[in-house]
Computed example of a mutant assay.
Amino acid sequence: METETAVGTRPARIALLAMVGLAVAGVVLTAAGHSDAARVLALAELDVLWIVLLATGVILHRHRVPLFVGWRRIAASLPPGPVRRAIVSELGLLTALIRAVAQRPPHVPLNAIPITSTQGTLPIPIAIAVVTVLEVAALHIIIPWRPVSIALTLASVYSLILFFGYLAERRQHPHYLTATSLVLRNGAHTIATVPLDNIDAVTLIQDGSVTYPAVEGKIARIATMEGCSISVSLRSPQLLALTARHRASEYAVSEIRFAADDARETCARLLDRR
């Protein structure tokens, strides 16, 4: 049974899918040289738009939902859950990239000490940027249809922007140390908040066995391309989740290894506050 917050969402979703389908068909027809047919489809998109606006307005009126409130609820519930989470994630990446370009300070609480781990992250973005430039050049040579070539070029550039946003998000959300805890993060996701009184030992290490966050047995590695440089042994097991996914697995670990640009200074701070 449809609830009040979902009133009008279903027809809006159907109309949106129809408009996307018409838009894709229009691009294909334009690329094939059938511009007249593409114009007809564009007019059909406008017809779908005004029909759904009218029909949704009638539905909201029948359910006695104010028009503005109804459309705001529809906009909030229009994308399915996974799509909504993907949109929020992309917006987070773009926001982090803007903050990094503007040289804004990282997201840490007041009086907290950020623990950055950016060493070894530059070569991969440079390589991907070079590959993207070569890919764009190849698209213009291989694909004879200019609209399709432009669309694929924009998609490649946007994916590169998102990748740089992924890196920026990790720079904007570093691990950090407070007066009472060590907070370890994977981008905007908090992997674990470790109370300082639960830390048994802190040691410098050189662990290059993995280059990404992973758990093996009772050891969690929050690694970068340089691996891990600090090991924190715990007095009692710590629960953590490596990602913010809806069904991400939780692990109970007795040792956490992570990377830090200034590993010696970070170890000294941890030992001093422990």
Rank of each mutant, 00 (worst) to 15 (best):
P66E: 01
V48S: 01
S249G: 06
V157K: 05
A138P: 07
R64Q: 13
S89G: 13
H173E: 08
A12G: 07
L239C: 11
A155L: 12
A25V: 02
L93H: 05
N111F: 11
H107G: 02
G165W: 02
R273P: 00
D47R: 10
W145A: 15
F68Y: 15
P109S: 06
V131F: 14
T224F: 01
T193G: 06
G120T: 06
G92E: 08
I124W: 14
Y166F: 14
H140S: 08
A31E: 08
A263Y: 01
S77L: 15
L78E: 01
R273M: 01
I126V: 14
V253F: 03
D36F: 15
L67S: 11
F164Q: 04
I150V: 09
G227T: 05
L53R: 06
P147I: 11
S249V: 08
A248W: 06
I51N: 02
S233V: 15
P237S: 03
A102D: 13
I150W: 14
G120K: 07
F68E: 11
T3S: 15
Y166P: 05
V108P: 08
A25S: 09
V148P: 02
M1T: 09
R274P: 00
T132G: 07
A129I: 06
L242R: 05
R146L: 12
I161C: 03
R64N: 05
V232T: 03
P213F: 04
T203D: 14
A100Y: 12
A137D: 04
H246Q: 13
R185Q: 09
F163Y: 13
R273F: 00
L122K: 12
R10V: 15
T56W: 00
R64D: 09
A179R: 13
P125T: 06
A12I: 05
E2A: 07
W145C: 06
A137H: 07
I142K: 03
I141N: 07
T56R: 01
G208E: 09
A179N: 12
I59W: 03
V27M: 10
I98H: 15
L242H: 07
A112Q: 08
H140C: 08
L204C: 04
I191E: 00
Y158W: 14
A241G: 11
Q103T: 15
E265F: 04
A15L: 02
V131W: 13
A38N: 00
R264I: 10
L22V: 02
T190P: 09
L17T: 08
V136M: 09
Y166E: 11
R72T: 12
S229N: 02
L94K: 10
A75P: 01
P147S: 05
A102W: 10
R247A: 11
A25Y: 03
P11V: 04
V83L: 12
A220M: 02
T3H: 15
W50G: 03
R170C: 03
I222E: 05
I74Y: 08
W50Y: 13
I98E: 15
L93W: 06
D200V: 03
R264P: 00
H175P: 02
F163S: 04
S229E: 03
N186I: 05
I113T: 15
R264H: 12
L53P: 02
I74V: 09
A86W: 08
S209W: 04
L271K: 10
G120D: 10
I256D: 00
L60H: 05
T116P: 11
R235H: 07
L184F: 02
V83H: 09
I191W: 01
W50E: 06
A129F: 12
E216Y: 12
L94D: 04
